[in-house]
Design a protein around this nucleic acid. Sequence first.
DNA 1: TAGATTGTTAATCGATTAACAATC
DNA 2: TAGATTGTTAATCGATTAACAATC
Lengths: 222, 222
Amino acid sequence: MSKNDKVSNSVIRRLPRYYRFLGEVLAEGISKISSRELADRMKITASQIRQDLNCFGGFGQQGYGYNVAELRSEIGEILGVNKDLPAVLIGAGNLGKALSVHLDYKKYGCRLCGIFDANEELVGTMLGGLPVRSMSELESFCESCRPVIAILCIPREEAPDVCERLTGLDIKAFWNFSHYDITLENIPGTVVENVHLGDSLMALCYKINNPGKKPETEESEQ
Amino acid sequence: MSKNDKVSNSVIRRLPRYYRFLGEVLAEGISKISSRELADRMKITASQIRQDLNCFGGFGQQGYGYNVAELRSEIGEILGVNKDLPAVLIGAGNLGKALSVHLDYKKYGCRLCGIFDANEELVGTMLGGLPVRSMSELESFCESCRPVIAILCIPREEAPDVCERLTGLDIKAFWNFSHYDITLENIPGTVVENVHLGDSLMALCYKINNPGKKPETEESEQ
DNA sequence: TAGATTGTTAATCGATTAACAATC
DNA sequence: TAGATTGTTAATCGATTAACAATC
């Protein structure tokens, strides 16, 4: 499973997409696929697929292609979809509520084990089978459940403090939906995904408002 | 406002982040900033900032730096935050609900004008001040409200059809949260932001599960 | 004026694509 | 065997960084 030591961020971001598309291909009952066929589906180049996969190993067979089920399972293994990483969700507001019930965490290799909110009125209510807990319980809960991931659905101003508190509780990964940018290059072994929904919407609006400046699209409407 | 004709995707994705950080700087009461100071805050290089900004124009003053309020307002103008693009949200499930009340659309240059769901039981209920409408009303509603953006919070299997239906109703932009990948290089002038929350979570898990293969971090924990 | 910092060009770096020998 | 398609190296392309002259 290990070949090259450095895997670029661009490759990492494409792995889940490969996993997703291979799942679709598999669901269609196709058992064998070439890099060209997969590339056509995904609107990327066959070269890129082969180059990407070879960061991890030779999963294909020359002259034949790739076994869909096998390749998907290999990529799943690399991503760790069979793991069971415990996660806590902080902030049971609108977005927190949605994320606690909308996502099938098991599919991604994690498990939601605790939900917390600073608002005492929410404490005790149930969300996706879990009770919302008080922030004062965070320390004791983490000591017994030992979560690895924290999902932050809290306001910007609370993020720095909560983040530091969680780092002290051995949280290794932040899935951050607060409007605050977590940059942790100081804490070794800790990883972050900042998901800025507002940034994404703004990027979309930029493309609407600046049709002439659209990148990498051959055909423009004027 | 126009200088270079082609603006790369990388630059576009950074614009909202500049806008965000400049907002923070402004809130701190700082009126003047150099590319170096801003770069330090954002953990990027000063070169990149100057290079990025010069896609749009010379907003700074040599020997002095940038006027924070002015630069922020210029970038806001480029992003179109003062626009009022009408948007419809399709799918009032958990995520749809969260997106209809959690985001301050006005801040990003849009306005939510309609919410739709295929489930007739939800029709008529209120969400963030708007009634959930039946999918059968979609055509008549779009003809009067003329939405530009569609926010898709629907299941994967419904996405292709809904997407085609909306394209026929002159929707120019898709903010897509369904697990389906929209690729519209055929329809000129239409733009897409595919937000795959699952992919983001998987990328985070990859980084947890493969600490040795982490990219672009000088210090690894072993 | 001298110092600071931009705008912009040139150099470097990394990622994508093309090519092709290896091989099933 | 011949045809197909991989794994991998080399060429190209684009994005980031460095350098510096222009100038406030």
